[in-house]
Design a protein around this nucleic acid. Sequence first.
DNA 1: ACAGCAGTTGACGTTTACGTAAAGGTAAGG
DNA 2: CCTTACCTTTACGTAAACGTCAACTGCTGT
Lengths: 137, 137
Amino acid sequence: MPSPDVLTAPPESRTWTIAQVAEEFGVTHRTVRHYEDLGLVTPERRGTQRIYHRRDRTRLALILRGKRLGFPLEEIRTIIDLYDAPRGRRSQLEYVLDQIDARRADLEQRRRDLDEALSELTTFEQRCRADLASLTT
Amino acid sequence: MPSPDVLTAPPESRTWTIAQVAEEFGVTHRTVRHYEDLGLVTPERRGTQRIYHRRDRTRLALILRGKRLGFPLEEIRTIIDLYDAPRGRRSQLEYVLDQIDARRADLEQRRRDLDEALSELTTFEQRCRADLASLTT
DNA sequence: ACAGCAGTTGACGTTTACGTAAAGGTAAGG
DNA sequence: CCTTACCTTTACGTAAACGTCAACTGCTGT
């Protein structure tokens, strides 16, 4: 049985086990550990056990979306690193802004490819529907 | 020297060597041959040499766009196969239309992910620009 | 005290997508 | 005829992204 704390504790301090996050995100624990090996997530350790916080879940969501978009994990890491890079000095901020531009260009290329693929698919579908209609007559 | 035929022949019959298509699409000849091993392109053979036609270039363009979108080659093949599957019988047409729906769902999920990523990037950029402005003052 | 389960660390296996080296065929130019 | 450039097959290598044991550890209920 879970201790009542889970229900009464403030949401900020809510934590998860590896099995829980794996289950929630639909991946295996091996996958989660692999991401940790690559430095994509860094869960807290209570002794030897991993404790996942909200921050870790946010990262996992970012990672998995990156994967759905077809980015390699190493590239995903550079994105994550970008998002929580220190931005204290002007030079750092300018570097980050440059990186943002590069990423945006990449994403927009992908969107062009995607829209192209979608419109070709639509054209193809119309042809098929026309063929189907001509069979019916 | 190329024979004058290359200039006078009708554009339909224009062909390419493996080196030319590889160069044109910015990949190595090894890559092109790999796609052939997987059945993604099937160039004509003149003796032992490969002859690439317009049709092959169209396919290569499809393949590479698929790759930019992060699809595995096997999945790309199912797409290509879909595009030139026989559509004579009604049952075949209905099957193809089902596949089209599945693909569209996939592509639209990707677009959602993409738009989300882009808008997060924009938000982040604004924050950075704000930080930069506050440094200037 | 002890079984049982969840979690942990290696370490090797697998699939995908090519790279790369070896060894040779072929057509054109000198 | 011989070199050179381009093409061919065969085959082993490799990096990424996990899968899959194996062998422990550490709580938890009985």
